[in-house]
Design a protein around this nucleic acid. Structure first.
Length: 604
RNA sequence: GCGUCGGUGGUCUAGUGGUAGGACAUGAGCUUCCCAAGCUCAUAGCCCGGGUUCAAUUCCCGGCCGACGCACCA
């Protein structure tokens, strides 16, 4: 049994995640998060919200998952999200029909031609199957759109789609969000929510699914605005896999820092550099193994239709590098598209530091003269006057001015032209913001945290598996046990469990079986600490034992009248303000004699 | 979507043309008490549909699900 199998088995058995609708045979690409998994996922989301929204002073919204078709016409997903599939009659292999045409002819962007035309081109050029050589002429080309479609309301009059990314829900609402931000750039809007893609072939557990959770931040910045303050992340180390290394087929990563990478031009955008920096620190904080983590730059042909520079965070999962988040500069693509399609303004008015005043010749003709005089040709006269005013203002010095319409010259009395040199003041301009987008696949981050936390070792001769999850993320924070359920130990343990729950801790009370079995149960779900009530707790000084998951070491901690001190220390631990070691020191704890090192040497 | 292999209690598995056995886990009881101990009892299973057959979990076909490879991944 491989570690990967063990992990899947643990996920199922301990309620982290499992295939959905198993009673009906299951359905590929959908998973249910069990009790532990739902809590772990929620904690991952909270940690993301804390770091990328709260601490960055960005706002959070929650948009609908279904939106009407025009939204996705504008976003490009209706056309760009289509794949042209052609199946070989000989060997059954599926090919991208548009790629076949592009590879064998001079035609570029065959996708834009439509399925019927592409099928014709395949026949005209006598294209063959790249796999088996069978003739493909006459085979039909079908479009496969990765969006789930539906109808809004009865009938099919209002087609809608489940969003293939959460981002559009933010772009569509830009006018109101900009108003809310009091039209001040930069500002950021984030969202955690589900998105849907009807993947052809869901694979590898949570890695490629048809319904997934994204945590996305759309940071709207002025195209010529100030770069971000990098002082907090300039020294942050990064493991980069840039285009050059990839094209050289080198597996070597570039070990550098945010500041150096930006200076050397490896990372183009200071905004991207900034977010790579805080993302790296965040991933490390939530327990991602930095030896199995890197940032990979997108190759030129790989970039999305909107992106100009793009980096992925990748984690090694099951021996493969898997994209777990993307950092792109989406430019003004989305807002411009939505402005064009909706007719709404997707700009922010940016005042100049000083209003710019210019003088400009202008005319304001008296239409009550031009109308009767020129009839339906009056507008042409106006246009001619405007043109002359702009090009030859000095021509307006006399009593009359001549304009030429269709080769006929007309003299217009100066008095009715309304000519004057006007002073115009421009106090700013309407700017379409550029978008910096850090986009996280929550399920993939979950899978990474889960897999990278997986450990096996041996305690006092017995093998164990455990999850070394950070206390902040652990779905169950503390286990509380009576050594035995008698002599008042059970009652005291329940009191302590209740006191912990009142403080908002996720507590598991367990009085079944042997104490060792209960520790192992908590180890498997990654519970960082266990408190055990023993005879000393009910007959002695009231202290309980505190057992640390990773080291399996125990200490005695005061838990009688002075329970509050313990509760405070645990709160610090959960909030990430303290480590287990620091807490022990703070409480003046010593490891219980005889149990200094229960982990067997050389165990794995 | 194609190909190969697979699908037996919650989990891991043995086995069979006459409807199944183990281990672990789970629950109850006894016992023990700080690291998956022992004993007793209990709960619980042949992925779905069709075919062949007196009889199918087993053989055949199709589907669903999974692993791997190919294709795909805006």
């Amino acid at each position: 049994m491989t570690d990967h199998d063990r992990l899947t088995e643990l996920a199922t058995r301990r309620g982290f995640y499992f295939p959905a609708a198993g009673a009906y045979g299951g359905v590929a690409g959908f998973y249910t998060y069990g009790p532990q998994g739902a809590a772990l996922k929620r904690n991952v989301e909270s940690a993301w919200r804390d770091r990328f929204l709260t601490r960055e002073d960005h706002m959070e919204v929650a948009g609908p998952t279904v939106m009407p078709e025009p939204v996705f016409e504008a976003s490009g997903h209706l056309d760009g999200f289509d794949d042209m599939i052609l199946e070989c009659p000989g060997c059954g292999a599926s090919h991208r029909a548009d790629h076949l045409v592009e590879d064998n002819t001079d035609i570029e962007d065959a996708e834009a031609l439509g399925t019927e035309r592409v099928a014709e081109l395949i026949a005209e050029h006598d294209l063959e199957c790249p796999s088996c050589g069978a003739v493909l002429a006459g085979e039909s080309v079908t479009a496969f759109n990765l969006m789930f479609g539906t109808n809004i309301g009865p009938g099919s009059s209002a087609p809608g789609y489940l969003r293939p990314e959460t981002a559009q829900a933010i772009f569509v609402e830009f006018p109101r969000l900009a108003e809310y931000a009091r039209n001040q750039l930069p500002f950021g809007v984030g969202q955690i929510g589900t998105a849907y893609r009807n993947e052809i072939s869901p694979r590898r557990g949570l890695i490629r699914v048809r319904e997934f959770t994204q945590a996305e931040l759309e940071h709207f910045v002025h195209p010529e605005g100030a770069p971000p303050d990098l002082s907090g992340v300039a020294e942050t180390s990064l493991s980069l896999y840039p285009i050059d290394s990839q094209q050289a087929r080198s597996a070597e990563h570039v070990e550098t820092t945010v500041g150096e990478a930006l200076e050397a031009g490896v990372i183009g955008s200071p905004w991207i550099a900034y977010y790579l920096g805080i993302a790296k620190e965040w991933y490390e904080h939530v327990g991602v193994d930095m030896d199995r983590f890197r940032f990979r730059q997108h190759l030129p042909g790989e970039r999305a239709h909107y992106a100009t520079d793009c980096w992925d965070a990748e984690a090694e999962l099951g021996g493969n590098w898997i994209e777990i988040s993307g950092f792109s500069t989406r430019g003004t693509y989305d807002l411009s598209r939505h402005a064009d399609h909706s007719g709404e303004s997707m700009t922010v008015f940016e005042p100049y530091e000083k209003p710019q005043t210019t003088e400009r010749p202008a005319v304001d003709p008296d239409m009550s003269y031009l109308g009767p005089e020129f009839g339906d040709r009056a507008p042409e006269v106006v246009a001619a006057l405007k043109e002359r005013a702009a090009e030859e203002p000095e021509a307006f010095d006399g009593e009359e001015i001549e304009v030429t319409i269709d080769g006929e010259t007309h003299a217009i009395p100066m008095a009715i032209t309304g000519f004057e040199i006007r002073e115009e003041t421009i106090s700013g301009e309407h700017v379409t913001p550029e978008v910096i987008e850090p986009s996280f696949g929550v399920d993939r981050v979950f899978a990474t945290v889960f897999e990278h936390a997986f450990r096996r070792d041996s305690v006092e001769g017995e093998e164990r598996t455990y999850l070394s999850l950070p206390p902040e993320l652990a779905p169950t924070f503390v286990g509380v046990f009576p050594l035995m359920d008698k002599d008042g130990m059970g009652e005291r343990a329940k009191e302590i469990a209740d006191a912990l729950r009142e403080r908002g801790f996720a507590v598991e009370y367990d009085d079944s079986g042997s104490i060792g079995r209960r520790y192992r149960r908590q180890d498997e779900i990654g519970t960082p600490l266990c408190l055990t009530v023993d005879y000393e707790s009910v007959e002695g000084d009231g202290s309980v034992t505190l057992r640390d998951r990773d080291s399996a070491a125990q200490s005695r901690v005061p838990a009688g009248e002075d329970l509050d001190r313990l509760l405070e220390a645990l709160a610090d631990l959960r909030a990430g303000r303290q480590t287990v070691a620091a807490i022990k020191e703070e409480l003046g704890l010593e490891t219980v004699a005889g149990d200094e090192d229960p982990i067997d040497a050389g165990a794995e």
